[in-house]
Each structure stands twice: as structure tokens, then as C-alpha cells.
């Protein structure tokens, strides 16, 4: 639905050139929630602004529904922008307008009649759960409520895609979850495509179907969220995954359990998707003559299924151990045997 090809943005000043976005190509499918994650300065905010041309691309193209945004004259671009909703980190509401009038603003821009505006605005206020706040001013609202107004405003002209620029970064964790739930429900209810920029892995994990990891203006890794989570390739991605699951990476604490004895192994098990629901441990305990000592574990739900890790110490005869590990592997769970470095 959205084809981004070789998109680049070069900022040029007298003193230096900054390649904010460097040759990014992505395809975004209709109805998906696509996440872009990166540290600040990675170029993700510039990237999302290139999609609706708030920033002019230096090179490349953005094609939405077979229309190349990058080649549109400005009057056509303005029309197109009415169909590209956007929400912001700092909400960017007009303080001088009430909730109702803020949401009506994009409709005024689109030239919708007053009666129709009212109908649409009330419908949106209901959708984002702000009934009763129609005539409040933004200053009277909490952060989460402000972002709800932002979302309602972005949806006013029935957009084809919703761009979220760090939409939850200014909110506390609980409110973040509420807003993310709202985005998922809108995605499901309206089938709306969402492109979401964030620096929080938690956000990606919670609502995205696919993710791209950005670093220095480049996409260093992208794919299904679960895949990227389980097999992070680049260093940046690994750091992000670690952010989500700090336990997994504190291997030092497990070193006391790791030994060179042949009748004992410490293994890390990766449960992905449906495997996460299996009672694998009790299964092998019954099947093989081994003793299992659970060291630590965690589970993270994602849009495409859960993803868990478990560290266990397995004690038993060497041959039995090998068979056990083989059995675990055959059942589709990834196994990694930990050794002293």
C-alpha cells in the first residue's frame, strides 16, 4: 500500500552535511501496524516527516495507493495530506480551541459543512472515549486525554494511513498502554494502516506487526516483530531487545551454575508463538531421566504471539542429556547451551 523507495534526506549547511535519512526502502502493507524504532538522532522523526512531505526528500519516492507523494504539486499534496493522519509526541493541539473545535479543525480545512462536521466530531469523540469533554480546553485535560484528542483529530478526514511520531513518549507507562490499546482497536475497527515511530521497544512489542530498526539514517534490520525479537542481528537491535527483557542478558548471574561437568548443562530455551503455551518442562521431566532446575524466565506478548525465554539447569547422564536437548530442539523450541567463555 505504501512503497518507500530509496528515500533520502540530506541536510546541508555551510559547515557540514548531515545524512538524516539514508536510502531507506520499505513496503508497508494495508492494515498493518508498522513500527520504526531507533535512538534519538537515528533519523526516524525525519523519516516519518518525509512520508507526508513535512520535510522535502532529497531523493527517492513515497508511493501511497499508487500516487507518488514526492512528485505532487503543492495543492495536490495538501489534498493528499487530508488523507494522511498524524499524531505527535507533544500532541500539538490548538490551546485556543475546545476539544470539539480541535477535532473539527481538519474538517474545516477539508471544507466539510457545519452540520456534517458536528456529526463527525461527536462520533470521533465517542470513538476515542472523550464523551463529556467536548467543550473542555486542552489545558484542562491530562496528557492521555490530549493524545486522544490528537488521535480523533487525525482520524477526522478518514485517513488512509496514520503516522505516529513518538505518540506515547511524553506519557506515563499506564497512559501509554491505554493509548496503545486505543491505536490497536482503531487499527482493527477501521482497518487503518499505522506507521509508528518510537524509541521504546515496549511499544513495538505491544502493538506492531512488523518493525524496522533505524540507525544513522539507515534501516539496519526489518521484519516480523517476533523474528526480529528472537533473532536480532545488529548490535542496535540487540540493545533494544535487551531493553525489553533485561533478565535475559544478565547472564553473569547464571555463571555460578555453569560448570564443566558432563552430567550438567545450563541451557537457554526460546519459546516463540504457540510453543510458548506448551508445558515442555514437565514433558521432558517425565520422558527423560533428568532433573530440571529452573533458573530464570520471562515471557513477552506481541501482536503475533508470545515470545519467552527460560534458563534451566538440566542434570543427568551425558547421553540422556544429549537426547533431551535433541528432543527439545525437535519440538520447535530453540535451545542454546551455555558454556563458560
Amino acid at each position: 500500500m505504501i512503497q518507500i523507495k530509496n528515500l533520502s534526506k540530506l541536510y546541508q549547511t555551510k559547515k557540514q552535511k548531515v545524512q538524516a535519512v539514508d536510502n531507506v526502502s520499505l513496503n508497508i502493507e494495508p492494515g498493518e501496524i508498522f513500527g520504526v524504532i531507533g535512538y534519538s538522532g537515528a533519523g526516524k522523526s525525519t523519516f516519518v516527516r518525509l512520508i507526508n512531505r513535512l520535510e522535502e526528500p532529497s531523493d527517492g519516492s513515497v508511493v501511497i495507493h499508487d500516487k507518488d507523494i514526492t512528485k505532487m504539486p503543492s495543492h495536490q499534496l495538501r489534498k493528499k495530506r487530508q488523507k494522511i493522519g498524524m499524531i505527535f509526541q507533544h500532541f500539538n493541539l490548538l490551546w485556543s480551541r475546545t476539544v470539539f473545535d480541535n477535532i473539527a479543525f481538519p474538517l474545516e480545512i477539508a471544507g466539510v459543512s457545519k452540520a456534517k462536521r458536528k456529526e463527525k466530531v461527536l462520533e470521533l469523540i465517542h470513538l476515542v472515549g472523550l464523551s463529556g469533554k467536548e467543550y473542555a480546553y486542552p489545558s484542562q485535560l491530562s496528557g492521555g486525554q490530549k493524545q486522544r484528542v490528537g488521535i480523533a483529530r487525525a482520524l477526522a478526514n478518514d485517513p488512509e494511513v496514520l503516522l505516529c511520531d513518538e505518540a506515547t513518549s511524553a506519557l506515563d507507562p499506564e497512559t501509554t498502554d491505554d493509548i496503545l490499546d486505543l491505536l490497536v482497536s482503531i487499527n482493527k475497527k477501521l482497518g487503518l494502516t499505522i506507521i509508528l515511530i518510537t524509541h521504546e521497544m515496549h511499544v513495538i512489542q505491544k502493538i506492531c506487526h512488523r518493525v524496522a530498526v533505524m540507525e544513522n539514517g539507515k534501516v539496519v534490520e526489518n521484519g516480523e516483530v517476533l523474528n526480529v525479537f528472537v533473532r536480532p542481528q545488529s548490535k542496535t537491535t540487540k540493545r533494544f531487545v535487551q531493553q525489553l527483557n533485561p533478565l535475559e542478558h544478565e547472564k553473569d548471574k547464571l555463571y555460578n551454575f555453569i560448570n564443566d561437568r558432563e552430567d550438567s548443562e545450563v541451557v537457554k530455551l526460546h519459546f516463540i508463538g504457540n510453543h510458548a503455551r506448551r508445558a515442555l518442562i514437565s514433558e521432558i521431566a517425565k520422558k527423560f531421566d533428568v532433573e530440571i532446575n529452573i533458573l530464570q524466565g520471562s515471557i513477552a506478548p506481541t501482536q503475533e504471539g508470545a515470545y519467552g525465554t527460560l534458563f534451566v539447569e538440566i542434570n543427568g547422564e551425558k547421553a540422556v542429556l544429549t537426547n533431551t536437548i535433541q528432543y527439545i530442539q525437535d519440538s520447535g523450541v530453540e535451545v542454546e547451551v551455555l558454556k563458560h567463555a
Partner: peptide, 21 residues
């Protein structure tokens, strides 16, 4: 707030609209 002006642009507002609204 620059962000508010940016938001209006993102909604497809004309310069006139940005000035007066």
C-alpha cells in the same frame, strides 16, 4: 508553538488558514 503549525500543515492547511486559524 511550532508543533501546532506543523500539525496544521500535516492536515493540509493552506497558508491563509494557518494565518487566520
Amino acid at each position: 508553538d511550532k508543533g501546532v503549525i506543523e500539525a496544521a500543515k500535516a492536515m493540509g492547511a493552506k497558508t491563509n488558514t494557518i494565518i487566520f486559524k
